[in-house]
Write a protein that binds this DNA or RNA. Structure first.
Lengths: 179, 179
DNA sequence: AGAATGTCCTAACGGTGTTAGGTTAGCGCC
DNA sequence: GGCGCTAACCTAACACCGTTAGGACATTCT
């Protein structure tokens, strides 16, 4: 999965992006340097530029893959549950905890939408919008809550003894019915 | 205001932090390099290390100032309004929009609490906890929503035509009464 | 006077993204 | 067989980054 977002890239570029993803997730954001990535691939940093325009393009490819995987996971979550909003919340948190560095990369700066694979951002957002009955207002509020919960958790901003499952449940419940 | 957080620093270190703050807010996060900061002060980057241990310490000082100002603004907001949660939400958003780069610095990574001025994080959190009637669960949910709204707005993740005032109002209303 | 302190300096180390320009291997084609 | 083209890699360099070692002052304290 998650190869369609890279379909515009050459095979070698795809390999590089896959390697970059492993490097990012396994060794953290500082490891995602052109030199470290080159070393992982057995080539020099400058050779990467034959395959990807620059680091921004590499990051955009990683973000595109992330959105595509989110879209798939979120659609699945809705399909498998009869409480779609709750299922989406769980899937959202799960994605971020499993791949915190990719999640951060996807959310910590304004998106270079011109560099993303087309449609992936919308595809990731669609399941929630549908689960909210097409109510964009409600979908946005739920998304903001979910992102806030996730990123504050990843950044260890809650006290260690905080019961985040409960906070999630209460928050989602409250926002769920809000008109 | 916002000098108490720096009271542990020498006068020269305080000047440096103040300059750093202007540099960060006026020229963006990339401008906050030791060399650029030195240039702004008319000294070499290496001279900064006479006054601050390293860049982390500089950032921790900036973050401490940010928390201290938040604490003051939030306390004021509660004092001046009879709908404290709504007032806090407005003050929270206002702080972030006025100083987006400082807000990002304060929230985008795990806190080095050992480097912060003591008590400032708690002081900033206190007004909301009190406005939530001491209900930590509720305070956390509201905080997560507020941070999510703010950071997604700063990162231009909502469509340009989104009515964020309404999203804020509905979200806060919903989370307000939630038990 | 002499010591200590505060403040700055130059020079360097290893790291970053990126570009210019050069090499080699393999392929299609006359 | 040899020509040209392309893909993939290379070295060397540029300007930046955080940081440290070691040295030069000028002011202040004893």
């Amino acid at each position: 999965m998650a190869f369609h977002a890279l379909s515009r890239l050459t095979p070698r570029a795809r390999e590089i992006v896959q390697t970059a993803r492993q490097l990012l997730e396994q060794e953290g954001p500082d490891a995602l340097s052109m030199r470290r990535l080159g070393a992982q691939l057995g080539i020099r940093a400058s050779s990467i530029y034959e395959h990807l325009r620059d680091k921004q393009a590499l990051e955009a490819a990683l973000i595109s893959v992330g959105f595509e995987e989110q879209a798939e996971l979120f659609a699945q979550a809705v399909r498998r549950s009869d409480t779609p909003i709750a299922a989406l919340a769980a899937a959202y948190r799960d994605f971020a905890r499993r791949q915190p560095n990719l999640y951060r990369l996807m959310t910590e700066r304004p998106l270079r939408r011109d560099l993303l694979a087309s449609g992936v951002e919308e595809a990731a957002a669609m399941p929630l919008l549908e689960a909210a009955g097409g109510d964009r207002e409600r979908a946005r509020a739920i998304w903001a809550f979910a992102h806030g919960m996730v990123i504050l958790e990843l950044n260890q901003r809650f006290p260690p003894d905080a019961d985040l499952d409960t906070t999630w449940r209460k928050g989602i419940d409250a926002l769920h019915g809000a008109g």
